[in-house]
Design a protein around this nucleic acid. Structure first.
Length: 944
RNA sequence: GCGGAUGUGGUGAAAUUGGUAGACACGCCAGACUUAGGAUCUGGUGCCGCGAGGCAUGAAGGUUCGAGUCCUUUCAUCCGCACCA
C-alpha cells in the first residue's frame, strides 16, 4: 500500500510519522548508537582519497569535568573534519588524554587514592561528556599518555634524545657514536661544546680520558642531558613546588617559605634547534601573533661578548651586549647575584651587604625579578672593572634585574641609552656619561639605534650601526671579545620530582647514567604506598628502595633515576601515535606517517603558544633528523580558539541579615556581594525557589524585589567552579540537544576570539533547528516534502548558501556559517519551499554542524546510505547571477539614497541616472558636481 | 618588565579586497492565535530630533571622493612569561 506516488508528487506516503515532532534527544541517541554500531567514524590508513589530519589539543582529564569552554575548539575541528569528509577526504580525527600531571598527584596526596584510579574515573566522565556532543572521533585510536603501551614510546624517544647530539655543521641531530668517532680522530676542535664552551680537547686527550671523563664530556653534547638547576624547594612541606604552587615567595598550601635549591636534572638541548625553530615558522600557517610569540620566546639577538678586567685582580668579567657601539657610555656593570665571580671580587667591606642581598634574591621568583619596576634594588660589590678601551674604572654591582641564565649573566650598563640602567644609576647616584649629545635629555634614557655618537673616542661622530661594527672589529683584533649570537630561550628542564609521570629509562652505574635496554621498555611506574617526596627533594620514587636499587654483580652500584618526565613529554609526539596507535614494534610505522604526514589543522588554546608547541616542534625535528619520520614540522596550520569566560551572577545580601535585595535597588542598602550558581538564574532573573534550595542557609532568605522579580548583577570573569559560573554541556544537551549546543557554541563568535558565555541565546539556535524541521514536517500533517521542481528563487537561495558555507567552512568562520543557515531557512520559509531537491542539499551543507538532525531527515526523505558520506553540493554561478544592483548613492561620501540600475549600464549612463535623481538634485542645489565616482557593482559617490 | 590579544547597539556579534555600519541572533516593545504559554506567528527596535536631518565602531589626530577597515599618538581590559595542563 505504500508504493504508489500521489499525483501532486507529495511524499506523504512516508508520513506514517504523523504528528512528526522534533524529538531531538531521541533522534540524537538513536543516531549515536547507529554510528557506533556501524563504525561510521572508523578511519583507515589505506585509502585512495586525499588525506586530511584534523587534530585537537588533547585535554588533561581534570576532576571538574568539561565546562562549556572546553568543547569550543573540539566542535570547530569536528565540523571541519566532517566538512572535509563530505569534500572527499580521508580524515583522521582522533582524541586522547594528556593523563599524567600534577593535579592527580595532589589529589592522591590528599585522599590516598592512586592517580591511575582517579585518572581513569576522570577519563570516563570526560568520555561521557564528549560522546554526548556527538563528535566524529575514531575512538579506536584513543591514546592516554599514562598508558604503559604509550609511554613505552615516550621513553624510547627520550633515549633517542639521550643518544644524540646536534652537529652544527650538518645542521642536524646525529647519533652520539658518530661524535665519539670524531673525538677519537680530532678531539672537539671542530665541534664546540654546547654545554660548556671552555671544554677543549684533542684526540689524544680524548683517548686518554677515563670512561667517566668521556661520559661527562658527552653529556655536554647530548640532546637529552643532565645538569644542575634550581627548583622551588619548600622545606616545611618537604616538597619541590611547581611555579603554580608558589605565591609571593611562599607555598600556596600553608604559606611556608620557599627557597631555591640546586638539583641535578634532565634537560633537552632545545637551544641547538633555536635557528631551525625560527626558520620553520616561515613554512607553517600559524597566526602572526603566534609566530611573534614564538620568535620572542626564542629571542635571537646578535651582539658581542666583551671582556672587562677587574682592577687590582686577576679576574675578568665577560659581558654580553647587543650594543657594542655604546661602549664609551658604560658607567657601571651589573652581575646577576648568582654569578660565579661575585664572591671572588667582592671586597671585605662590602661582603656583608652582598651576602644579605644575595639572600634576599634567593627568595624572589624570576618573574618578580623581571617585573619589579617600582623598587630598584642592588648592591655594590666594592670592585671596579676597567673599560678595555679608555681604561675608565667602573663600579661593579649586583642586581636582581640581571638574570644568570641569559647571556653571560653580566651586563655593561649604559644609563643614557637604557631605561632600566638609567633608573638604576639615578637610584644609586651613579654619574651618567652622555654619548648621545642632544638626543639625551638627562630626564630619561634614549634607546635609539639611529644617530651619531658623541663623546666616544674613536667612534665619535659615527653612525651607531657603523660604530657597532667598528667596535666589534677592534674587540676581535685586540682579542678581548667576539661576536656572539644569543638566545633568550633556555634549554628545557625535563625532570620533575614527582610520581605521576613517565619514569626515565635510565640507570646510574656508579653514578654514570646509562640508557636502559630498549627491550626492557616500558619501565613501568611502580605502585607506591604514599606520594610523599624522598629526602632532599627527590621524587616519591626514591622512597621505593627495592625499585630504585638494582642488584649488581661486581660491586658496582646500580640505581634508577627517581625523577619523572614533565607533562609535555607525552604531548610532544602524540600526534604521531594516533596514526598508528596499536603498533607494538615502533612508535609509528614510517609508511603510515608518510601517508598521514603533517597535521593539516591543529586547534587548541593560546596558552600552549610557546611551551607545548616549541617542544613538539623540536621533537619532530629530532625524529626527522634521525630518519624516523619524513617531515620536520608537526603542524601545518594552527588555530587558537579563544577562551570562554564565565558570566557570573551576583546577589546582594543586606549586611548582617538574610535578606537579599534586587540589583536595581541595592544602592539603598549596605550589601555584601555573593556569587550565585548561574544555573539557577534565567538571564538575570533569579529563580528564588531554586535559590532557597541551593544552600541550606538560604532556605529562609527574604527578598526585596523589583517588579516582582529578583534581578542579579553580572560580572565577566574566568570560568571556575569556585565562582559558580560554570555551565556543564550535559545540561544544555539534555535541554536543547547536541545539535543545538554545537551550533550555539559556534554562533557565539569567531573561534579565535575570547568571549563570555551566555546561556540565554541558545534558544535562538534551537528555534532555527525547529524551523528547519518544519520545512520537512508538520506536526499535524507529518512529512510535507515534495518532489516538485525548484523555482529560480529557491535555487538562488540554495546556491548562495552553498557558496557561503563552503567558503566559511574553509576559513573556519563557523559563526557566520550558522547565520547563513538561518538566513537560508528564513528565506525558504518565506518561499514556502518544501522541495526535496532543495532541502536535501541543505541537509548535506548542515550536517557537519548538526549531524544528528540532518541524518534523521536525510533518512526520512528516503535517502539510502549515511549523510556522513554524501557529496558536498556543488555551487553553480548561474543560479545567483543578478542583472541589476541597488546602488548606494552618496553625496560627498554620505549616503543619500539608493537607485536600482542595470549592471550592464555604462559609467556615463550611471552618472546620468544618478545626477537626475531627485534626491541627488536636491543636494546639488543646481550646481555641477566636481566629480562622480562610480565603482561598478559597488557604489556611486557624487562630489560637490 | 617583556610579549600577545581585544575594544562596534541593552547583549553575542556581522561587514572576507578602503565602498549602503549593525546582517544573524538574544533581549525588549506592540500585536495575532490559544483554556494556557518559557509554544508558534506578524511587526518594531543604534542614539538625538515632530521633521528635514544630525550623531555614531574605546579616545584624539591624519591619509582619502569615501575609513570599523590604512597611518600616528593614546586609553582601557584580558591573557602568557619557561615546574598548571
Amino acid at each position: 500500500m505504500f508504493n504508489f506516488a500521489l499525483p501532486n508528487g507529495n511524499l506523504t506516503l512516508f508520513s506514517i510519522l504523523l504528528g512528526m515532532e522534533y524529538t531531538f534527544r531521541h533522534i540524537e541517541q538513536k543516531w549515536q548508537e547507529r554510528w557506533k554500531a556501524s563504525g561510521a567514524y572508523r578511519v583507515s590508513n589505506n585509502s585512495s582519497k586525499p588525506k586530511c589530519y584534523v587534530l585537537d589539543m588533547f585535554p588533561y582529564p581534570s576532576g571538574a569535568g568539561l565546562h562549556v569552554g572546553h568543547p569550543l575548539g573540539y566542535i570547530a575541528s569536528d565540523i571541519y573534519a566532517r566538512y572535509k569528509r563530505l569534500k572527499g577526504f580521508n580524515v583522521l580525527h582522533p582524541m586522547g588524554y594528556d593523563a599524567f600531571g600534577l593535579p592527580a598527584e595532589q589529589y592522591a596526596l590528599e585522599t590516598g587514592q592512586h592517580p591511575s584510579v582517579t585518572t581513569d574515573e576522570n577519563i570516563n566522565a570526560f568520555r561521557g561528556q564528549l560522546d554526548n556532543i556527538g563528535f566524529c572521533y575514531d575512538w579506536e585510536r584513543e591514546i592516554r599518555t599514562s598508558d604503559p603501551g604509550y609511554y613505552k614510546w615516550t621513553q624510547h624517544i627520550f633515549l633517542q634524545l639521550f643518544d644524540s647530539w646536534y652537529n652544527r655543521h650538518a645542521g642536524k641531530a646525529e647519533r652520539i657514536d658518530v661524535l665519539v668517532r670524531i673525538f677519537e680522530q680530532d678531539g672537539n676542535l671542530h665541534h664546540e661544546c654546547p654545554g660548556d664552551r671552555s671544554i677543549r680537547f684533542s684526540a689524544d686527550t680524548w683517548n686518554e680520558y677515563s670512561y667517566e671523563e668521556q661520559q661527562n664530556v658527552l653529556m655536554e653534547y647530548r640532546l637529552g642531558y643532565l645538569a644542575y638547576a634550581e627548583v622551588n624547594w619548600c622545606p616545611a612541606l618537604g616538597t619541590v613546588l611547581a611555579n603554580d604552587e608558589v605565591i609571593n615567595g611562599v607555598s600556596e598550601r600553608g604559606g611556608h617559605p620557599v627557597i631555591k635549591k640546586k638539583m641535578r636534572q634532565w634537560f633537552l638541548r632545545i637551544t641547538e634547534y633555536a635557528d631551525r625553530l625560527l626558520q620553520g615558522l616561515d613554512a607553517v600557517q600559524f597566526s602572526e601573533a603566534m609566530k611573534d610569540m614564538q620568535r620572542n620566546w626564542i629571542g635571537k639577538s646578535q651582539g658581542a661578548e666583551i671582556k672587562f678586567n677587574i682592577a687590582g685582580s686577576m679576574e675578568s668579567i665577560v659581558v654580553y651586549t647587543t650594543r657594542p657601539d655604546t661602549i664609551f657610555g658604560v658607567d657601571f656593570m651589573v652581575l646577576a647575584p648568582e654569578h660565579e665571580l661575585v664572591d671572588g671580587i667582592t671586597t671585605n667591606e662590602q661582603s656583608e651587604a652582598v651576602n644579605a642581598y644575595k639572600e634576599y634574591v634567593q627568595s624572589r621568583s624570576e618573574r618578580e625579578r623581571m617585573a619589579e619596576v617600582k623598587q630598584i634594588t642592588g648592591c655594590f660589590t666594592g670592585a671596579y672593572a676597567v673599560n678595555p678601551f679608555d681604561g675608565r674604572k667602573i663600579p661593579v654591582w649586583i642586581s636582581e634585574y640581571v638574570l644568570a641564565g641569559y647571556g653571560t649573566g653580566a651586563i655593561m650598563a649604559v644609563p643614557c641609552g637604557d631605561q632600566r640602567d638609567f633608573n638604576f644609576a639615578n637610584h644609586f647616584s651613579i654619574p651618567i656619561t652622555n654619548i648621545l649629545g642632544q638626543a639625551f635629555s638627562g630626564d630619561e634614557a634614549n634607546p635609539t639605534k639611529e644617530g651619531k655618537l658623541f663623546n666616544s673616542d674613536f667612534i665619535t661622530g659615527m653612525e651607531m650601526k657603523d660604530a657597532s661594527e667598528a667596535v666589534m672589529l677592534k674587540i676581535e683584533s685586540l682579542g678581548i671579545g667576539k661576536r656572539q649570537i644569543n638566545y633568550k630561550m633556555r634549554d628545557a628542564g625535563f625532570s620533575r620530582q614527582r610520581y605521576w609521570g613517565e619514569p626515565f629509562p635510565i640507570v646510574y652505574r656508579n653514578g654514570i647514567p646509562e640508557a636502559m635496554n630498549e627491550a626492557d621498555l616500558p619501565l613501568e611506574l611502580p605502585f607506591v604506598e604514599h606520594y610523599k617526596q624522598g629526602e632532599d627533594g627527590e621524587g616519591p620514587l626514591a622512597t621505593i628502595t627495592d625499585w630504585v636499587n638494582l642488584p649488581s654483580d661486581n660491586g658496582t652500584s646500580l640505581r634508577r633515576e627517581t625523577n619523572t618526565m614533565p607533562g609535555y613529554a607525552g604531548s610532544s609526539w602524540y600526534f604521531l601515535r594516533y596514526m598508528d596507535p596499536h603498533n607494538g614494534d615502533t612508535f609509528c610505522d614510517r609508511r603510515i606517517s608518510d601517508y598521514w604526514g603533517q597535521v593539516d589543522l591543529y586547534i587548541g588554546g593560546t596558552e600552549h603558544a610557546v611551551g607545548h608547541l616549541l617542544y613538539s616542534r623540536m621533537w619532530t625535528k629530532v625524529l626527522y633528523d634521525l630518519g624516523y619520520i619524513g617531515f620536520d614540522e608537526p603542524y601545518k596550520k594552527l588555530v587558537n580558539q579563544g577562551m570562554i569566560t564565565g558570566s557570573s551572577r551576583l546577589v546582594y545580601r543586606v549586611r548582617g541579615t538574610n535578606q537579599f535585595v534586587s540589583a536595581g535597588l541595592r544602592a539603598q542598602y549596605d550589601t555584601d556581594e555573593l556569587h550565585v550558581d548561574v544555573n539557577i538564574v534565567d538571564g538575570v532573573e533569579l529563580d528564588i525557589e531554586a535559590f532557597k534550595k541551593w544552600r541550606i542557609d538560604f532556605a529562609n532568605a527574604q527578598f526585596i524585589l523589583e517588579d516582582g522579580k529578583y534581578i542579579c548583577g553580572t560580572l565577566v570573569e574566568k570560568m571556575s567552579k569556585r565562582l559558580f559560573n560554570t555551565v556543564n554541556p550535559d545540561v544544555l544537551v539534555e535541554k536543547f540537544g547536541a545539535d543545538t549546543f554545537r551550533m550555539y557554541e559556534m554562533f557565539l563568535g569567531p573561534v579565535e576570539q575570547s568571549k563570555p558565555w551566555e546561556t540565554k541565546g541558545i534558544e535562538g539556535v534551537h528555534r532555527f533547528l525547529k524551523k528547519l524541521w518544519r520545512l520537512f514536517a508538520d506536526e499535524q500533517k507529518g512529512l510535507i516534502v515534495t518532489t516538485a521542481a525548484p523555482t529560480a528563487d529557491e535555487l538562488k537561495t540554495l546556491h548562495k548558501t552553498i557558496r557561503k558555507i563552503d567558503d566559511d567552512c574553509d576559513r573556519l568562520s563557523f559563526n557566520t556559517a550558522v547565520s547563513s543557515f538561518m538566513v537560508c531557512v528564513n528565506e525558504l520559509i518565506e518561499l514556502k519551499c518544501n522541495k526535496k531537491a532543495i532541502l536535501e542539499q541543505l541537509l548535506v551543507l548542515l550536517t557537519p554542524f548538526a549531524p544528528h538532525v540532518c541524518e534523521e531527515l536525510w533518512e526520512t526523505i528516503g535517502n539510502k546510505g549515511s549523510i556522513l558520506d554524501a557529496a558536498f553540493p556543488v555551487f553553480e554561478e548561474k543560479y545567483v547571477t543578478e542583472s541589476t544592483k541597488e546602488y548606494p548613492v552618496s553625496v560627498n561620501g554620505k549616503l543619500r539614497t539608493t537607485i536600482k540600475i542595470s549592471l550592464d549600464a555604462s559609467s556615463d549612463e550611471v552618472e546620468k541616472i544618478a545626477l537626475s535623481n531627485e534626491v541627488i538634485q536636491k543636494w546639488l542645489e543646481g550646481k555641477d558636481p566636481k566629480k562622480v565616482i562610480f565603482v561598478k557593482g559597488k557604489m556611486i559617490n557624487v562630489v560637490i
